[in-house]
Protein backbone atom coordinates (compact mmCIF):
# COMPACT_ATOMS: atom_id res chain seq x y z
CA UNK A 1 0.00 0.00 0.00
CA UNK A 2 1.09 3.56 -0.57
CA UNK A 3 0.04 6.69 1.29
CA UNK A 4 -2.45 9.01 -0.40
CA UNK A 5 -0.36 10.98 -2.84
CA UNK A 6 -2.14 13.97 -4.30
CA UNK A 7 0.61 14.60 -6.81
CA UNK A 8 0.48 11.01 -8.03
CA UNK A 9 -0.09 10.19 -11.68
CA UNK A 10 -3.14 8.56 -13.23
CA UNK A 11 -2.19 5.20 -14.72
CA UNK A 12 -3.66 2.85 -17.24
CA UNK A 13 -2.43 -0.72 -17.49
CA UNK A 14 -1.95 -1.11 -21.26
CA UNK A 15 -3.09 -4.63 -22.07
CA UNK A 16 -1.72 -6.06 -25.29
CA UNK A 17 -1.76 -9.46 -26.84
CA UNK A 18 0.39 -10.56 -29.75
CA UNK A 19 1.43 -6.97 -30.32
CA UNK A 20 -2.06 -5.47 -30.42
CA UNK A 21 -3.45 -3.22 -27.71
CA UNK A 22 -6.87 -4.21 -26.55
CA UNK A 23 -9.71 -1.77 -27.08
CA UNK A 24 -10.54 -1.24 -23.43
CA UNK A 25 -7.02 0.01 -22.69
CA UNK A 26 -7.43 2.58 -25.44
CA UNK A 27 -10.84 3.57 -24.12
CA UNK A 28 -9.32 3.95 -20.65
CA UNK A 29 -6.64 6.31 -21.95
CA UNK A 30 -9.33 8.83 -22.83
CA UNK A 31 -10.96 8.54 -19.41
CA UNK A 32 -7.64 8.69 -17.58
CA UNK A 33 -6.72 11.79 -19.58
CA UNK A 34 -9.93 13.46 -18.38
CA UNK A 35 -9.27 12.52 -14.75
CA UNK A 36 -5.67 13.73 -15.01
CA UNK A 37 -6.75 17.08 -16.44
CA UNK A 38 -9.26 17.50 -13.65
CA UNK A 39 -6.65 16.72 -10.98
CA UNK A 40 -3.88 18.54 -12.87
CA UNK A 41 -1.44 15.62 -12.74
CA UNK A 42 0.25 13.63 -15.53
CA UNK A 43 -1.31 10.57 -17.08
CA UNK A 44 0.79 7.52 -17.83
CA UNK A 45 0.35 4.07 -19.34
CA UNK A 46 2.26 0.99 -18.20
CA UNK A 47 3.15 -1.29 -21.08
CA UNK A 48 4.77 -4.64 -20.25
CA UNK A 49 5.64 -6.88 -23.16
CA UNK A 50 8.33 -7.89 -25.58
CA UNK A 51 9.12 -5.86 -28.69
CA UNK A 52 6.01 -3.73 -28.39
CA UNK A 53 7.63 -0.33 -27.96
CA UNK A 54 5.83 1.11 -30.98
CA UNK A 55 2.48 0.64 -29.22
CA UNK A 56 3.56 3.51 -26.98
CA UNK A 57 2.82 6.03 -29.71
CA UNK A 58 -0.82 5.02 -29.83
CA UNK A 59 -1.08 5.40 -26.06
CA UNK A 60 0.51 8.83 -26.27
CA UNK A 61 -1.81 9.87 -29.11
CA UNK A 62 -4.76 8.89 -26.91
CA UNK A 63 -3.61 11.01 -23.99
CA UNK A 64 -0.62 9.49 -22.15
CA UNK A 65 2.09 11.94 -21.09
CA UNK A 66 4.39 9.03 -20.29
CA UNK A 67 4.61 5.37 -21.13
CA UNK A 68 6.48 3.09 -18.74
CA UNK A 69 7.65 0.38 -21.09
CA UNK A 70 8.98 -2.89 -19.67
CA UNK A 71 10.68 -4.87 -22.40
CA UNK A 72 11.47 -8.48 -21.48
CA UNK A 73 11.16 -11.79 -23.37
CA UNK A 74 9.58 -13.29 -20.27
CA UNK A 75 6.70 -10.84 -20.69
CA UNK A 76 5.91 -11.86 -24.24
CA UNK A 77 2.84 -13.84 -23.21
CA UNK A 78 0.84 -12.88 -20.17
CA UNK A 79 1.41 -14.79 -16.98
CA UNK A 80 -0.01 -13.54 -13.71
CA UNK A 81 3.06 -13.47 -11.52
CA UNK A 82 5.66 -11.65 -13.65
CA UNK A 83 3.05 -9.10 -14.76
CA UNK A 84 2.01 -8.59 -11.17
CA UNK A 85 5.67 -8.14 -10.19
CA UNK A 86 6.06 -5.43 -12.86
CA UNK A 87 3.03 -3.51 -11.66
CA UNK A 88 3.80 -3.79 -7.94
CA UNK A 89 7.39 -2.65 -8.41
CA UNK A 90 6.39 0.30 -10.54
CA UNK A 91 3.55 1.33 -8.23
CA UNK A 92 5.92 1.24 -5.25
CA UNK A 93 8.46 3.29 -7.18
CA UNK A 94 6.28 5.98 -8.80
CA UNK A 95 3.30 6.07 -6.40
CA UNK A 96 0.46 6.76 -8.81
CA UNK A 97 -2.82 7.85 -7.20
CA UNK A 98 -5.07 5.92 -9.58
CA UNK A 99 -4.48 2.73 -11.58
CA UNK A 100 -7.08 1.54 -14.10
CA UNK A 101 -7.34 -1.85 -15.78
CA UNK A 102 -9.69 -3.27 -18.39
CA UNK A 103 -12.18 -5.72 -16.87
CA UNK A 104 -11.04 -8.35 -19.35
CA UNK A 105 -10.28 -11.93 -18.32
CA UNK A 106 -6.63 -10.85 -18.09
CA UNK A 107 -7.36 -7.66 -16.14
CA UNK A 108 -9.62 -9.51 -13.72
CA UNK A 109 -6.86 -12.07 -13.12
CA UNK A 110 -4.11 -9.49 -12.65
CA UNK A 111 -5.64 -6.55 -10.80
CA UNK A 112 -6.76 -8.44 -7.68
CA UNK A 113 -3.35 -10.07 -7.34
CA UNK A 114 -1.76 -6.62 -7.37
CA UNK A 115 -4.36 -5.17 -5.00
CA UNK A 116 -3.68 -7.94 -2.52
CA UNK A 117 0.09 -7.51 -2.63
CA UNK A 118 -0.21 -3.72 -2.34
CA UNK A 119 -3.00 -4.06 0.26
CA UNK A 120 -4.87 -1.49 -1.76
CA UNK A 121 -8.52 -1.24 -2.68
CA UNK A 122 -9.91 -2.47 -5.99
CA UNK A 123 -13.38 -2.11 -7.48
CA UNK A 124 -14.38 -4.55 -10.18
CA UNK A 125 -16.24 -3.87 -13.41
CA UNK A 126 -16.84 -0.16 -13.14
CA UNK A 127 -19.16 1.40 -15.67
CA UNK A 128 -18.24 4.98 -14.83
CA UNK A 129 -15.48 6.89 -13.05
CA UNK A 130 -15.36 10.46 -11.84
CA UNK A 131 -13.71 12.66 -9.24
CA UNK A 132 -15.58 13.77 -6.13
CA UNK A 133 -15.47 14.31 -2.38
CA UNK A 134 -16.35 11.86 0.36
CA UNK A 135 -17.31 12.53 3.96
CA UNK A 136 -16.68 9.80 6.53
CA UNK A 137 -19.99 9.23 8.24
CA UNK A 138 -18.55 8.76 11.76
CA UNK A 139 -15.85 11.42 11.92
CA UNK A 140 -17.29 13.85 9.35
CA UNK A 141 -13.80 14.01 7.92
CA UNK A 142 -13.89 15.17 4.31
CA UNK A 143 -11.67 13.56 1.69
CA UNK A 144 -11.43 15.70 -1.38
CA UNK A 145 -10.94 14.66 -4.98
CA UNK A 146 -11.26 10.91 -4.66
CA UNK A 147 -11.91 8.52 -7.51
CA UNK A 148 -15.62 7.69 -7.50
CA UNK A 149 -15.87 4.13 -8.77
CA UNK A 150 -19.35 3.45 -10.06
CA UNK A 151 -20.49 -0.09 -10.72
CA UNK A 152 -23.62 -2.16 -10.93
CA UNK A 153 -23.92 -4.54 -7.99
CA UNK A 154 -26.22 -7.21 -6.71
CA UNK A 155 -26.88 -8.79 -10.08
CA UNK A 156 -27.26 -5.38 -11.68
CA UNK A 157 -30.12 -4.34 -9.42
CA UNK A 158 -28.29 -1.50 -7.75
CA UNK A 159 -25.63 1.00 -8.74
CA UNK A 160 -22.96 1.45 -6.08
CA UNK A 161 -20.38 4.20 -5.82
CA UNK A 162 -17.23 2.92 -4.15
CA UNK A 163 -14.30 4.96 -2.84
CA UNK A 164 -10.95 4.21 -1.26
CA UNK A 165 -9.68 7.08 0.81
CA UNK A 166 -6.70 5.71 2.66
CA UNK A 167 -4.98 2.72 1.14
CA UNK A 168 -3.80 3.84 -2.24
CA UNK A 169 -3.47 3.58 -5.16
CA UNK A 170 -7.16 3.78 -5.95
CA UNK A 171 -7.70 0.97 -8.42
CA UNK A 172 -10.56 -0.16 -10.61
CA UNK A 173 -11.27 -2.45 -13.51
CA UNK A 174 -13.56 -1.05 -16.17
CA UNK A 175 -15.80 -2.95 -18.51
CA UNK A 176 -15.04 -3.06 -22.16
CA UNK A 177 -17.10 -0.74 -24.29
CA UNK A 178 -18.50 1.56 -21.62
CA UNK A 179 -16.08 4.42 -22.25
CA UNK A 180 -15.82 5.99 -25.66
CA UNK A 181 -12.63 5.50 -27.59
CA UNK A 182 -11.22 8.80 -28.79
CA UNK A 183 -9.69 9.29 -32.21
CA UNK A 184 -6.36 10.29 -30.69
CA UNK A 185 -4.00 12.98 -31.83
CA UNK A 186 -0.88 11.60 -33.54
CA UNK A 187 0.89 14.92 -32.97
CA UNK A 188 0.71 14.68 -29.18
CA UNK A 189 4.10 14.16 -27.64
CA UNK A 190 5.01 12.04 -24.67
CA UNK A 191 7.92 10.34 -23.04
CA UNK A 192 8.74 6.63 -23.26
CA UNK A 193 10.52 5.49 -20.11
CA UNK A 194 12.11 2.04 -20.16
CA UNK A 195 11.97 0.18 -16.86
CA UNK A 196 13.85 -2.98 -15.84
CA UNK A 197 12.25 -5.39 -13.42
CA UNK A 198 13.91 -8.32 -11.64
CA UNK A 199 11.97 -11.57 -11.36
CA UNK A 200 12.31 -14.22 -8.68
CA UNK A 201 12.11 -17.96 -9.34
CA UNK A 202 8.64 -17.92 -7.82
CA UNK A 203 7.51 -15.22 -10.27
CA UNK A 204 8.52 -17.45 -13.17
CA UNK A 205 7.47 -20.82 -11.75
CA UNK A 206 4.17 -21.20 -13.63
CA UNK A 207 4.82 -22.33 -17.19
CA UNK A 208 2.70 -21.63 -20.23
CA UNK A 209 2.63 -24.99 -21.99
CA UNK A 210 0.13 -24.43 -24.74
CA UNK A 211 -1.72 -21.42 -26.03
CA UNK A 212 -4.62 -21.27 -28.42
CA UNK A 213 -6.44 -18.17 -29.63
CA UNK A 214 -9.64 -18.05 -31.62
CA UNK A 215 -10.60 -15.43 -34.15
CA UNK A 216 -12.16 -12.72 -32.14
CA UNK A 217 -15.83 -13.56 -32.41
CA UNK A 218 -18.39 -11.04 -31.48
CA UNK A 219 -19.84 -11.77 -28.14
CA UNK A 220 -23.33 -10.34 -28.13
CA UNK A 221 -24.12 -11.89 -24.80
CA UNK A 222 -21.42 -9.92 -23.03
CA UNK A 223 -22.29 -6.58 -24.62
CA UNK A 224 -23.68 -3.91 -22.33
CA UNK A 225 -25.35 -2.10 -25.19
CA UNK A 226 -26.53 -3.47 -28.51
CA UNK A 227 -27.64 -1.51 -31.54
CA UNK A 228 -29.66 -3.76 -33.83
CA UNK A 229 -30.83 -3.13 -37.37
CA UNK A 230 -33.70 -4.75 -39.26
CA UNK A 231 -35.38 -4.74 -42.64
CA UNK A 232 -36.18 -1.06 -42.16
CA UNK A 233 -32.51 -0.23 -42.68
CA UNK A 234 -33.25 -1.10 -46.31
CA UNK A 235 -29.81 -1.96 -47.70
CA UNK A 236 -26.20 -2.80 -46.91
CA UNK A 237 -24.90 0.75 -47.39
CA UNK A 238 -27.40 2.09 -44.88
CA UNK A 239 -26.38 -0.58 -42.42
CA UNK A 240 -23.26 1.51 -41.81
CA UNK A 241 -25.57 3.77 -39.79
CA UNK A 242 -26.07 0.94 -37.31
CA UNK A 243 -22.30 0.44 -37.02
CA UNK A 244 -21.83 4.18 -36.56
CA UNK A 245 -24.32 4.38 -33.71
CA UNK A 246 -22.82 1.30 -32.06
CA UNK A 247 -19.39 2.87 -32.41
CA UNK A 248 -20.51 6.13 -30.85
CA UNK A 249 -22.01 4.36 -27.84
CA UNK A 250 -19.36 1.70 -27.56
CA UNK A 251 -21.88 -1.08 -28.14
CA UNK A 252 -22.12 -4.21 -30.23
CA UNK A 253 -24.09 -4.61 -33.45
CA UNK A 254 -27.12 -6.90 -33.58
CA UNK A 255 -29.62 -7.65 -36.31
CA UNK A 256 -32.99 -9.17 -37.06
CA UNK A 257 -33.21 -12.17 -39.31
CA UNK A 258 -34.46 -9.99 -42.14
CA UNK A 259 -31.21 -8.01 -42.04
CA UNK A 260 -29.14 -11.19 -41.90
CA UNK A 261 -31.11 -12.73 -44.76
CA UNK A 262 -30.54 -9.52 -46.71
CA UNK A 263 -26.81 -10.24 -46.45
CA UNK A 264 -26.10 -6.92 -44.73
CA UNK A 265 -24.43 -8.54 -41.74
CA UNK A 266 -23.28 -11.99 -40.58
CA UNK A 267 -25.51 -14.57 -38.98
CA UNK A 268 -23.53 -14.38 -35.71
CA UNK A 269 -25.14 -10.98 -35.14
CA UNK A 270 -28.69 -12.28 -35.26
CA UNK A 271 -30.78 -11.76 -32.16
CA UNK A 272 -33.83 -13.88 -31.50
CA UNK A 273 -35.21 -17.34 -31.26
CA UNK A 274 -32.81 -18.78 -33.82
CA UNK A 275 -30.05 -16.31 -33.04
CA UNK A 276 -28.59 -15.16 -29.74
CA UNK A 277 -30.65 -14.31 -26.68
CA UNK A 278 -29.35 -11.14 -25.14
CA UNK A 279 -30.10 -9.06 -22.08
CA UNK A 280 -27.93 -5.98 -22.28
CA UNK A 281 -28.37 -2.82 -20.23
CA UNK A 282 -29.59 -1.11 -23.39
CA UNK A 283 -30.98 -2.49 -26.65
CA UNK A 284 -31.69 -0.14 -29.53
CA UNK A 285 -33.93 -1.67 -32.22
CA UNK A 286 -33.77 0.26 -35.48
CA UNK A 287 -36.23 -0.59 -38.24
CA UNK A 288 -37.26 -3.83 -36.59
CA UNK A 289 -40.97 -4.66 -36.46
CA UNK A 290 -40.67 -6.79 -33.34
CA UNK A 291 -41.88 -10.19 -34.50
CA UNK A 292 -42.32 -12.62 -31.63
CA UNK A 293 -39.23 -14.57 -32.70
CA UNK A 294 -37.14 -11.44 -32.47
CA UNK A 295 -38.66 -10.25 -29.21
CA UNK A 296 -37.93 -13.62 -27.62
CA UNK A 297 -34.24 -12.84 -27.93
CA UNK A 298 -34.19 -9.32 -26.54
CA UNK A 299 -37.22 -8.45 -24.44
CA UNK A 300 -35.32 -9.11 -21.21
CA UNK A 301 -33.00 -6.19 -21.94
CA UNK A 302 -32.97 -3.71 -19.05
CA UNK A 303 -33.85 -0.80 -21.35
CA UNK A 304 -35.12 -0.90 -24.90
CA UNK A 305 -35.28 1.93 -27.41
CA UNK A 306 -37.32 1.32 -30.56
CA UNK A 307 -37.02 3.43 -33.68
CA UNK A 308 -39.70 2.65 -36.26
CA UNK A 309 -41.83 4.83 -38.49
CA UNK A 310 -44.88 2.63 -38.01
CA UNK A 311 -46.41 3.55 -34.66
CA UNK A 312 -48.33 0.27 -34.62
CA UNK A 313 -45.17 -1.86 -34.84
CA UNK A 314 -45.20 -4.54 -32.09
CA UNK A 315 -41.66 -3.63 -31.04
CA UNK A 316 -43.14 -0.64 -29.19
CA UNK A 317 -44.99 -3.00 -26.86
CA UNK A 318 -41.70 -4.07 -25.26
CA UNK A 319 -39.89 -0.73 -25.58
CA UNK A 320 -39.17 1.76 -22.78
CA UNK A 321 -38.47 4.57 -25.22
CA UNK A 322 -40.28 4.71 -28.53
CA UNK A 323 -39.35 7.02 -31.36
CA UNK A 324 -41.85 7.04 -34.21
CA UNK A 325 -39.83 8.30 -37.13
CA UNK A 326 -37.44 7.58 -39.98
CA UNK A 327 -34.31 5.86 -38.71
CA UNK A 328 -32.27 7.63 -41.38
CA UNK A 329 -32.85 10.94 -39.64
CA UNK A 330 -33.20 9.74 -36.05
CA UNK A 331 -29.91 7.76 -35.89
CA UNK A 332 -27.73 10.72 -36.95
CA UNK A 333 -29.48 12.81 -34.27
CA UNK A 334 -28.62 10.20 -31.65
CA UNK A 335 -24.99 10.06 -32.72
CA UNK A 336 -24.82 13.83 -32.50
CA UNK A 337 -26.41 13.90 -29.04
CA UNK A 338 -23.94 11.28 -27.75
CA UNK A 339 -20.92 13.08 -29.21
CA UNK A 340 -22.06 16.38 -27.70
CA UNK A 341 -22.14 15.15 -24.14
CA UNK A 342 -18.64 13.70 -24.41
Amino acid sequence: MIEPNRKGEIWVFAEQEDGALCDVSLELCGKARELADELKVPMAAVLPGWNVRELSYRLIALGADKVYYVHDTRLEHYRTLPYSRVMCELIAKHKPQIVLYGATPLGRDLAPRIASEMRAGLTADCTDLSIGDYTESKTKKVHKDLLLQIRPAFGGNIIATIINHDRWPQMATVREGVMCMGDGDPRRSGEIIEEKIEFSDFDLAVKLIERHREERKINLKAARTIVAGGAGVANKENFQLIHDLAGAIGGAVGASRAAVDGGWIGKEHQVGQTGTTVRPALYIACGISGAVQHRAGMEESAKIIAINWDKEAPIFSVAHFGIVGDLQTVIPMMIKAIRERA
Partner: peptide, 25 residues
Protein backbone atom coordinates in the same frame (compact mmCIF):
# COMPACT_ATOMS: atom_id res chain seq x y z
CA UNK B 1 -11.37 -3.02 3.89
CA UNK B 2 -9.84 -0.25 1.79
CA UNK B 3 -12.95 0.09 -0.36
CA UNK B 4 -15.96 1.81 1.17
CA UNK B 5 -19.44 2.19 -0.20
CA UNK B 6 -20.09 5.86 -0.74
CA UNK B 7 -23.53 5.75 -2.24
CA UNK B 8 -26.07 3.22 -3.46
CA UNK B 9 -28.74 3.92 -6.03
CA UNK B 10 -31.42 1.41 -6.74
CA UNK B 11 -32.50 0.62 -10.21
CA UNK B 12 -36.22 1.03 -10.22
CA UNK B 13 -37.78 -1.69 -12.30
CA UNK B 14 -40.50 -0.04 -14.32
CA UNK B 15 -41.43 -2.49 -17.02
CA UNK B 16 -44.64 -0.64 -17.78
CA UNK B 17 -42.90 2.71 -18.11
CA UNK B 18 -43.13 3.58 -21.78
CA UNK B 19 -42.05 6.94 -22.99
CA UNK B 20 -42.74 8.34 -26.44
CA UNK B 21 -39.79 10.38 -27.70
CA UNK B 22 -40.27 13.00 -30.39
CA UNK B 23 -38.11 12.36 -33.48
CA UNK B 24 -36.44 15.74 -33.03
CA UNK B 25 -32.97 16.84 -31.87
Amino acid sequence: SPTKVHRVQSIVLTKDGFKAIEPTE
